[in-house]
């Protein structure tokens, strides 16, 4: 439970679900918001410092470790750390090979980055929910959400990144004409030119919905799973504030949920990666 005993359960949960936000304040100056009202006043130009910091830190940690190994990689007998990195790389390579039929030198590193980075971000969920926020609160930081993948900005940022890569490679591989044809000539096809033109808006509507649904479902799947998992951790940790029996059973519950969550965080990272590879495959393949 949070430091001050004066918090109600609702306040505690809300506190845990609020990002550390930096943005333009009502008086025109820029600064860190100290209340939910201030955050909503900041609007679009606000930045979630905690999400960005942890997501960047996790990505940088992964890349530093992997690139350090890759720098002194040897084709001979690998040491243990290299063996681990090779295992991950080969796992990604196998998955990309099985679901990506085209030829591209960006899809595999993309998949590797997504899998490892999202896994690392999700892994922050296994750190006790109160630990880092409590330490930082003592240092005067009002809010802290340490799991970046529970921030829709983060998941949307990644899925939109994938989406733009997808559009880019669609156009690069099939040309603007091929890409537009894909959006307007399916799913209803006709040999008749008049019928073709008549079907064009219907096809475009259906395809556009399908296309735009991709980044939304892609990011919401990850966000929803991680947000729900985090919420359960928060609810469990509410039990620690009450009686001894509840605290003990809360500890047991937290352990069980954490063990289960190991599966969830890996699976969510894997699903995000596989969907990315599938989308990239769609972008590269001709109909």
């Amino acid at each position: 439970m949070a430091s001050s005993g004066t918090l109600t359960s609702g306040e505690y949960i809300r506190h845990h679900l609020t990002n550390l936000t930096f943005g333009p304040k009502a008086d025109g100056s820029w600064g860190i918001a100290h209340s939910a009202e201030e955050i909503s006043e900041m609007g679009f130009w606000a930045v979630h410092i905690d999400s960005l910091f942890w997501s960047f830190a996790m990505g940088a940690l992964f890349l530093l470790f992997f690139s350090r190994i890759a720098k002194r990689v040897t084709a001979g007998v690998p040491e243990n750390a290299q063996g681990f990195v090779e295992m991950v790389v080969e796992f990604i390579d196998d998955n990309v090979r099985s679901s990506f039929s085209g030829k591209s030198d960006i899809v595999a590193p993309l998949a590797l980055t997504i899998f490892c980075w999202i896994f690392m971000m999700n892994f922050m969920d296994l750190i006790p929910v109160d630990l880092i926020p409590l330490i930082l609160e003592k240092a005067g930081v009002p809010y802290q959400k340490v799991v970046p993948s529970t921030d829709p900005n983060v998941t949307f940022g990644m899925s939109l990144g994938v989406f733009f890569l997808m559009i880019y490679y669609s156009i690069a591989k099939k040309g603007l004409g091929g890409f537009s044809a894909e959006l307007t000539m399916h799913p209803f096809e006709s040999k008749n030119i008049v019928l073709k033109i008549l079907l064009l808006p219907i096809n475009f509507f259906l395809e556009a919905v399908g296309l735009l649904a991709k980044p939304v479902s892609h990011s919401l799947r990850l966000f929803g799973n991680m947000y729900a998992g985090e919420m359960i951790f928060i609810l469990i940790s509410l039990m620690f504030g009450s009686s001894i029996i509840l605290s003990v059973s809360g500890g047991a519950l937290q352990f069980i949920w954490a063990v289960f969550h190991i599966l969830v965080i890996t699976l969510q990272a894997f699903i995000f990666m596989v969907l990315t590879v599938v989308y990239m495959d769609m972008a590269h393949s001709h109909h």
């Binding site: 930045v47 979630h48 890349l63 890759a70 990689v73 949307f156 940022g157 990644m158």
Partner: peptide, 30 residues
Amino acid sequence: MNINVTLFWQMLFFLAFVWFSKKFVWGPMI
């Protein structure tokens, strides 16, 4: 749950990390 400019920062990080991973991790490892 506010959608704000964080999204674009994250997207920027994402593309930069993918580039870095391709150049300094995937290339040498594979």
